[in-house]
Simulated scan of single mutants.
Amino acid sequence: MTASHTTTNTLTLRDDDVLVSARSLAEYEDMFGLDRMDLERRIVDCPGGAASAVAEISAAGGSAIAVDPQYARGSDELRTRILDDVDRAVAHLQRREFDYDWDVRGGVVGHEEKRRRAAEQMLDHMEVAPERYVAGALPDLPLASDSADLVLCSHLLFTYADRLDMADHVDAIVEMARIAPEVRIYPLVDHAGNPLPELVRSVIARLKKERLTSRIEPVVRPFQLAATTRLVVQRTGNQRP
């Protein structure tokens, strides 16, 4: 899936602005509405962070890669950053426990265990299959056009709307749509759980000018109570039936 060109630009986020989040494939299935047929497609997870989705898909015989600027770190430095960020994420969630449906993730203790297990699974897989983890950053991914069928974008766009403007969102989505004919983005609220209707509408309008169609889908089992929808973007003519 990789191409010869290299990343030349990044979204306007400092390295310490973004958590390197650890999430399981089960959480991805909920967030992105993934079904068995989706998991048989060529998938790109961007940014992949410490999610174990690629490891789990690969173990089942599927085709998936993750892209993240953090993968440029050495293995020891990356492991330290990921495990530190798991601690930060768990502490943040517990401070805002009433904003989440803990039953969806096995309670506070169960959720923490799942996050740590996902991070360890991702790190272990990266050791044996480093080609599945590509160092790169939006909006210039080091991947060939049409090298995937589906791009998943978790907790970057809209989540950091206080630091990314509309142009950042559009440029990132257009780039992901270059890689695959379908892009799914979750959530559509910022990191505090605030809805962003004006930004979402503006992004959708701009994407239409890029010949990309968009629709908002419900999320059946949201962990974050306010994050009940995802954005699905497709190239014109690639709508799902």
Rank of each mutant, 00 (worst) to 15 (best):
239 Q>W: 08
58 S>R: 14
8 T>A: 12
99 D>V: 09
119 A>K: 08
239 Q>R: 13
192 A>I: 11
133 Y>K: 10
62 G>Q: 11
117 R>G: 10
82 I>R: 11
49 G>E: 01
204 I>S: 13
107 G>Q: 09
17 D>Q: 01
65 I>G: 04
127 E>L: 15
14 R>G: 15
175 E>R: 07
86 V>Y: 06
162 D>G: 07
236 T>E: 12
70 Q>F: 08
85 D>Q: 14
182 E>D: 05
172 A>M: 13
141 L>A: 01
184 R>I: 00
223 F>M: 09
165 D>L: 00
49 G>P: 02
74 G>M: 05
181 P>I: 04
76 D>E: 06
118 A>N: 03
231 L>D: 07
41 R>A: 08
52 S>E: 00
134 V>N: 00
175 E>S: 04
47 P>Y: 02
98 F>W: 15
229 T>V: 14
200 V>H: 03
81 R>K: 14
206 R>S: 15
152 L>A: 01
223 F>C: 07
73 R>T: 09
72 A>T: 09
187 P>S: 15
165 D>K: 01
90 V>Y: 07
173 I>N: 10
160 Y>N: 02
140 D>L: 12
151 V>I: 06
5 H>W: 14
80 T>K: 15
27 E>N: 14
40 E>R: 15
18 V>A: 03
99 D>E: 14
207 L>F: 08
58 S>K: 14
220 V>R: 13
95 R>Q: 14
130 P>Q: 09
